[in-house]
C-alpha cells in the first residue's frame, strides 16, 4: 500500500504546480487549497475509485473459488446472474421495494410535515418522535419488526383475534404475478412487511425535509392565495405541494440510493425469505462471495448495484452542477 501511495505522490506532485486555467495566476490561496485537498483526493482515488476498478476487473475474471484466478472471463459472470432464478428475484424485489418504499415515504412524509406545519402545540416534541427512528440502525429496526410481524407473535396475535390471519414476511404469494424469465414477476407480499419497517425508520427523514421546505415558503404566498379566496385544501394542493417539488426530487434520490443498496435491514429481519421473496442483491452478494467463494459473481453483483445507483445519482449530480454554474 505504501508503495502505491508513494507512486501516486510522485505522479501527482508535479501536477499540483500546473494551474487549471492559464489566465489565472497561481496564488498562495490556491496552493493552500490544493495542499489540503490533495491527500483526500489521493486517498479517494486509490481507496474508492481504485477499488471500484478492481471490483470491475474481478467481475470479468474466473475467480470463483478459494484460489484467485484472474484469467479473463468476459461477461460470463453477468450472463450467469441474469439467467439465475435468485438474481432475477432480487431484481424484482429491489424494484418493487424501491417503488413502494419511496412512494410511501413521500406520502407519509408530506402528510406528517403538513400536519406539523399547522403551528400546533408541542411541535418539537412530535418532530423528535417522528425523527427518532432515524437514530436507530437498520439492524435494530430489522430485529424489532421481525418480532412485531412474526406470524406467531406480535401484532398477529391481535389480528388473529379479529379474524385476520396475515403471514407477513413468510407469505410466498406474488400479487399480480406473471411469468417473466425464470421467476414470477409481481409484488411479493412478503416485501410489504419490509417496506413497513423501512418506512417506519426513514419517514422521519422525509418529514424533516418537507418541513424545512414548508418553512421556506413565505407566508405572503399563502396569504395572497387566501385573499383570492382559495380554501386551505386548495392552497396545499395547488400551491404548496407543487412548490415542494425540488424537495421531492432530493428525497427520491436519497431514498433510492438507500433502498437500492439495502442489506442490513433485510439481513436482520427476514433473510432471503422462502423462495427468495425478500432477497436483495446485497444479501446475495454477501452469501455468494463469503459462503460460496464465488468472488467474481459477487463482484459482478456489486458492479450491477453500482450502476443501478448511478442511474439515479449521476443525473442528479449533473443537474445540480448545472444549477451551480
Amino acid at each position: 500500500m505504501e508503495q502505491v501511495i508513494a507512486k501516486e505522490t510522485q505522479t501527482a506532485g508535479p501536477s499540483i504546480g500546473i494551474p487549471r486555467k492559464k489566465k489565472r495566476k497561481l496564488t498562495k490561496d490556491h496552493l493552500l487549497v490544493l495542499a489540503f485537498i490533495t491527500p483526500s483526493i489521493l486517498f479517494i482515488t486509490v481507496f474508492v475509485y481504485g477499488f471500484i476498478g478492481w471490483t470491475g476487473y474481478v467481475s470479468l475474471s474466473n475467480w470463483n473459488s478459494l484460489v484467485p484466478d484472474f484469467s479473463y472471463a468476459g461477461l460470463k459472470n453477468y450472463q450467469f446472474l441474469f439467467n439465475d432464478f435468485r438474481f432475477q428475484a432480487d431484481l424484482r424485489n429491489t424494484l418493487i421495494f424501491t417503488v413502494l418504499f419511496i412512494g410511501a415515504s413521500i406520502v407519509t412524509g408530506q402528510f406528517l410535515a403538513v400536519l406539523l406545519d399547522q403551528k400546533i402545540k408541542g411541535e418539537s416534541l412530535f418532530r423528535n418522535i417522528f425523527f427518532f427512528p432515524m437514530a436507530l440502525s437498520f439492524v435494530v429496526t430489522g430485529v424489532v419488526w421481525q418480532w412485531l410481524l412474526n406470524p406467531s407473535t406480535g401484532v398477529n396475535l391481535f389480528m388473529k383475534k379479529i379474524g385476520l390471519d396475515s403471514r407477513w414476511y413468510t407469505d410466498t404469494n406474488i400479487l399480480a404475478g406473471f411469468q417473466w424469465g425464470k421467476i414470477e414477476f409481481g409484488i411479493p407480499v412478503a416485501i410489504i412487511a419490509v417496506v413497513i419497517a423501512a418506512v417506519w425508520q426513514m419517514t422521519g427523514f422525509s418529514v424533516a425535509m418537507y418541513l424545512a421546505g414548508l418553512r421556506g415558503i413565505p407566508d405572503e404566498v399563502r396569504e395572497a392565495a387566501r385573499m383570492d379566496g382559495a380554501s386551505e385544501f386548495q392552497i396545499y394542493r395547488k400551491i404548496i405541494l407543487p412548490l415542494l417539488r425540488p424537495i421531492t426530487v432530493s428525497v427520491v434520490i436519497i431514498m433510492a440510493h438507500i433502498s437500492l443498496k439495502i442489506f442490513d435491514l433485510i439481513y436482520a429481519m427476514t433473510g432471503s425469505g422462502a423462495n427468495f421473496v425478500t432477497d436483495v442483491p446485497g444479501v446475495y452478494m454477501f452469501e455468494t462471495t463469503f459462503r460460496g467463494n464465488y468472488y467474481a459473481n459477487g463482484a459482478a453483483i456489486a458492479i450491477i448495484m453500482l450502476i443501478s445507483v448511478a442511474i439515479f445519482i449521476v443525473p442528479y449530480l449533473i443537474s445540480s452542477r448545472k444549477g451551480e454554474s
Binding site: E2, I16, K28, L31, A35
Partner: peptide, 23 residues
C-alpha cells in the same frame, strides 16, 4: 512561498508517516 511548500511537504510527510506507521 517557502511556507506554502513547507505546508505541502508537511502534509505529504504526515500522510506517509500515517501509512508507514500503520504498516
Amino acid at each position: 512561498k517557502k511556507k506554502i511548500w513547507l505546508t505541502i511537504v508537511l502534509v505529504f510527510a504526515l500522510m506517509l508517516s500515517a501509512c508507514s506507521s500503520s504498516s
